[in-house]
């Protein structure tokens, strides 16, 4: 019965989502940016990681200038002579990877913890939720900062830090939904039929958690990208050799005072557009999937 309904439900959902022009535009922007990031090596005029193709003589050129060997830097160059457009495409790639990877891992781990808490109940639940409360009561930036001080730099390390600050949101969400669903009649009915617990979990409870999880995941991804940029800006996130958008902005900060705005501002605009579009999509998802959360 559920399978029969699925296509129409999906269509209804798509129609509802596209009912908002703002959200539709945001979704398109997000998809376009993701594609640009995936195909960065193909569309970028330069490989910013390849030191041979970068000429220090071309440094700090404003947008539109041409290099000695005829390459036009449409968005200017940075302090080391890297083409900004290429650097930004690769930076976008890293920001997205960090945001996605940390989001997915946090989602998986948080869901597991939430389900365990909801089903075991008792002291397990109490203990896990205490940890979640503690985690959520501390400001994310502080926790991430400390972890990075301990762990050091690197893409894997920043993903670990982001997972640590994010998992609790998922755990709390899943536990809440699972507790509600668990008390519903259909789950009782499934138990009455002596269906194995895992089957109940995967076929009945998890699918009902999905809409809420999707909303939380979208918003957390925007948060993660933003937080990664902030940490990189503080010099704590990624190694300088592989700059994300945040690090590009940080690198340009030193040149800002001398009026070379493009090095900092342009990656910032990309970051802004990325984060805002994800948030708009998330907001719309929330409105469409769960009208009760509106407000």
């Amino acid at each position: 019965m559920i399978t029969a309904e699925r296509p129409s439900r999906l269509r209804a959902f798509t129609t509802a989502f596209l009912g908002s022009p703002t959200a539709t535009v945001a979704l398109c922007v997000f998809v376009a940016m993701t594609l640009a990031a995936i195909f960065a090596p193909l569309i970028a005029p330069q490989d910013p990681y390849d030191l041979r193709s970068v000429s220090i003589l071309d440094n700090l050129l404003p947008p539109g200038e041409t290099s000695f060997d005829g390459l036009t830097y449409w968005l200017g160059t940075d302090g080391q002579g890297r083409d900004m457009l290429s650097a930004m495409l690769y930076g976008l790639r890293i920001s997205l990877v960090v945001g996605l990877a940390s989001g997915v891992i946090a989602l998986a781990f948080g869901t597991l913890v939430g389900l365990v808490a909801a089903f075991r109940g008792g002291w397990v639940d109490a203990l896990l939720m205490r940890i979640v409360d503690l985690q959520l009561s501390l400001p994310t930036i502080l926790v991430a900062l400390i972890l990075l001080v301990i762990l050091g730099r690197g893409i894997d390390k920043i993903i670990v830090a982001l997972v640590v600050v994010q998992w609790a949101y998922f755990a709390r969400t899943v536990r809440g939904v699972a507790l509600v669903e668990n008390a519903r009649d259909y789950v009782d009915a499934a138990r009455g039929l002596r269906l194995p617990p895992l089957r109940i979990l995967f076929h009945h409870i998890l699918p009902n958690c999905l809409p809420t999880l999707l909303v939380v995941a979208t918003i957390q991804m925007a948060q993660a990208i933003s937080l990664e940029a902030t940490l990189s800006f503080l010099g704590l996130g990624l190694p300088p050799t592989r700059p994300s958008l945040g690090l590009l902005i940080a690198n340009g900060f030193d040149y800002l005072q001398s009026g070379r705005w493009w090095i900092s501002v342009l990656p910032g605009v990309v970051l802004l557009v990325l984060v805002v579009s994800i948030n708009v999509v998330g907001d719309r998802l929330r409105d469409v999937l769960n009208p009760h959360l509106r407000g």
Partner: peptide, 29 residues
């Protein structure tokens, strides 16, 4: 307010410095 929620605040800081310190010269950075 939506943008205020989404945008990393350090970038807002940069834009403010660029506008009010570097170009307009009104406020110290």
């Amino acid at each position: 307010s939506m943008i205020g929620f989404s945008v990393p605040i350090f970038w807002i800081g940069l834009i403010l410095i660029l506008t009010f310190s570097v170009y307009l010269g009104w406020l110290p950075a």
